[in-house]
Design a protein around this nucleic acid. Sequence first.
RNA 1: GGAGGGGUGGCAGAGUGGUUGAAUGCACCAGUCUUGAAAACUGGCAAGGGUUCACGCCCUUCGUGAGUUCGAAUCUCACCCCCUCCGCCA
Length: 425
Amino acid sequence: MLDIKLVEKEPERFKKYLELRNDNPHAIDRLLDLNQTRKDAQAIAEEKKSILNSVSKEIPKLKKAGENVDDKIKEMRDLGQEIKDLQEQAQQAIDAFENALLMIPNILHDSVPPGKSEEENQIVRSVGEKTQLAFEAKSHDDLGVELGLLDFERAAKITGARFCVLRKWAARMERALINFMLDLHTEKHGYEEMIPPFMVNGNSMQGTGQFPKFREDVFHLESYPYHLIPTAEVPVTNYYAGEILDVDMLPQKFSAYTPCFRSEAGSHGKDTKGLIRQHQFNKVELVQFVHPDKSYEAHEALTSHAEEVLKQLELSYQVVSLCSGDISFGAAKCYDINVWLPGQQAYREISSCSNFEDFQARRANIRFREKGGKPQFVHTLNGSGLAVGRTLIAIFENYQQEDGSILIPKALQVHMKGVKVIPKD
RNA sequence: GGAGGGGUGGCAGAGUGGUUGAAUGCACCAGUCUUGAAAACUGGCAAGGGUUCACGCCCUUCGUGAGUUCGAAUCUCACCCCCUCCGCCA
């Protein structure tokens, strides 16, 4: 959520951000109109309410003085009715304004490259060499099905499309990866491990920015006002919703493994083969609450924490700074980490590391207080560290052998009882 | 699911329908004292919105939402959450 006071001061700047995002800059004009309407409606209602309050205070005094107050009471009864209507109008104006405000994306950091689409994303660095195989690389799903590790067909029977059953070494490796990532982040990068609820209420969804705009992207429960989380970002960031933290508590760093559930509405026909785009997948998430002065520093660090997973697994990747047209709704700046997949001959996203500045903090009302100071909004950041299923894909495709077996990266072997290879049979 | 108890400021904790935006304590800030610190003492200290160059003034907020009333933290109803006991259960 934007700071409306800043928008009032520099509307042109905020219009510019919308243009850069390929969004309609007139949304700012509409927002300011709605804001003015809100102020006017509130002012009228408050003026009347002020009269009613002061007369109501007078009444007991007049009574004590022995005066007759029947007329005044009757007058106030009528005024009260009038105020009720005015307040209702004011509330409608407030709701309209707030709804509009919730639909406007975040500002952009100066370092975000301008651009229309993902083609204009900026490669920040490439790490490692693309894996060279002496034979034609298979895709992870062909490998997985051949080895009896991935069962898409039965998953479709049990549930539907975009689900998968992991068997044997695939299931074992998925679990090992979760442990490996959590151990790394807690032991080496200073995160506190957390297991949050996998369902959240609508308030939390609004806090991190999924609601109201991206309601269709999440799975909803029918008989409860709960929603399956699309990412651990939602429950973990909302952990401090509505709170004022002591400045000494910052930064707060959490790493959480959760399954993630996404409806993938709007991506029909995209990535239908394999594990790339599923309705349910596992992810280890990194979330930070930091002092506003430190958030860009923290963003670089958080990104490096995600990268470290790939480095240890000896997978090659690129870090890409998303351009203004490709960056997500709530992010002020975002690095995607794309891992090399020989089976697809392409880099594919395996992590997305964002600095939201105070966008989420404002929505979720997460503040901190300096000694003796006024409450201020914290900055929130998060990133995948990493998407577990996609990491498994990357290992399958990069570590495949000509005979159909798959080597297990050294760093992962200790989490798999020393097993070095997934055998052909 | 049943029966009780409770949700008040950063925290703890008072609160008779009418100067209660809210006692008191802790924390925090400023000052006095002190070589310095601590202690003690004095004063200050909620958030959000509106308005003002500013001092200030106005509105809202005591879990949430409705209601009663000229006036609600205080009365009524619904819902949410927490605690205790019982039942059920991994």
